[in-house]
């Protein structure tokens, strides 16, 4: 059994699927990173992804253009995140509760909206046309390299964008004044405020970016990954993204690695489900178990690090004679 498993894992198509599965989680994780950097916990990512997945499909169906659909999902994502911002920043709804409300709309609300717009119940399978799907991209030269080409070439356009977004998010956070303001606001509001940076405005912007990224993640799910929208398709990816953010220490690159870890767990799950002697359900729980383990490891590491720095500081301060 294990032999069979190893054989599968070390095939290019497995690594290909890891990347494919990681992409939407990565979008959402970056969304969580940006929001959290500004000091806002966006637990509504799950709902935003579900709703934007639906609108991406619907808009691409109406326009018969995947590009317009993706753009639509992105805009809807921004709008939803700003709505959350309005409630949290203006009306002072607890942001966690506001996020839960978005998730409610993402749950049953989307089924209703789908019916409202199309009369369909629960999924859009029958609407799908090739024009609505995000195209795959074969990268010249790269695709001809054995193994590497098989793994890295032929993904959806959004997959490449997702990984490129890691770089862009990093660039935005660390190389632009917006990023500087976001980080300042998230860490010390008073400091930002005292030099004339508008805290509320920065939080709105960060939430908007977060919504846009989640929107791309949603579009990826319905317009590429599943090739149509169906209820429950997000299946906790928005929540996993929050964990990926935490585990990645809130940094774009770190969150990419933890997203890849969850992608790996998920791909493993997909492979193992079909195997003899494996319980598909237990296997299905792997990504969530890995997430919890990841959180634990991260928390332990943080505590260790804090203790270590304290000890180091104390060692520096204590005169040699007074060592206890």
């Amino acid at each position: 059994m294990w032999e069979q498993l190893f054989e599968m894992i070390f095939k290019p198509d497995f690594l290909f699927s890891v990347i494919r599965i990681t992409s939407p989680i990565l979008f959402a994780a970056l969304a969580a990173v940006v929001a959290e950097k500004a000091g806002v916990t966006n637990i509504g990512l799950e709902g935003i992804m579900s709703i934007t997945a639906l609108f991406g499909t619907l808009i691409s169906y109406w326009t018969q253009s995947w590009a317009v659909g993706v753009l639509g999902a992105l805009i809807v994502g921004i709008a939803l995140a700003l709505l959350l911002g309005f409630f949290a920043l203006k009306l002072k709804t607890d942001i966690i509760l506001g996020g839960i409300a978005l998730n409610m709309i993402g749950g049953g609300g989307t089924i209703f909206l789908l019916y409202l717009f199309t009369g369909l119940r629960g999924n859009t399978g029958e609407l799908t046309t090739p024009e609505m799907l995000i195209p795959q991209v074969n990268i010249p030269l790269l695709k001809d390299i054995p193994v590497v080409g098989e793994i890295l070439s032929g993904h959806s356009l959004l997959t490449y964008i997702a990984f490129f977004m890691v770089f862009l998010t990093w660039l935005m956070l660390y190389k632009t004044s917006l990023g500087l303001n976001i980080r300042a606001v998230g860490e010390n509001q008073n400091a930002a405020d005292s030099v004339g940076v508008s805290v509320v405005r920065i939080k709105y912007i960060a939430l908007g970016i977060s919504g846009a990224l989640a929107g791309l993640g949603g579009a990826y799910m319905s317009m590429y990954y599943s090739r149509s929208w169906n209820s429950g398709m997000i299946a906790g990816r928005g929540f996993i993204a929050l964990a990926a953010q935490a585990m990645g220490q809130g940094e774009p690159t770190g969150s990419m690695w933890s997203s890849l870890l969850f992608g790996l767990a998920n791909a493993l799950k997909n492979k193992m489900e079909g195997m003899q002697g494996m319980s598909s359900y237990l296997v299905a729980s792997i990504p969530y178990v890995v997430t919890v383990l990841g959180l634990v490891i991260y928390a332990v590491a943080t505590i260790r690090r804090v203790k270590k720095t304290r000890r180091a500081q104390n060692a520096m301060t204590a005169p040699a004679g007074e060592e206890k």
Binding site: F87, L91, I100, A101, I105, G107, G108, G109, F112
Partner: peptide, 13 residues
């Protein structure tokens, strides 16, 4: 499923 939307609105306010 409209219930979920009503619920969300009540919840938010």
């Amino acid at each position: 499923e409209m219930l979920d939307i009503i619920q969300a609105v009540i919840f938010l306010f």
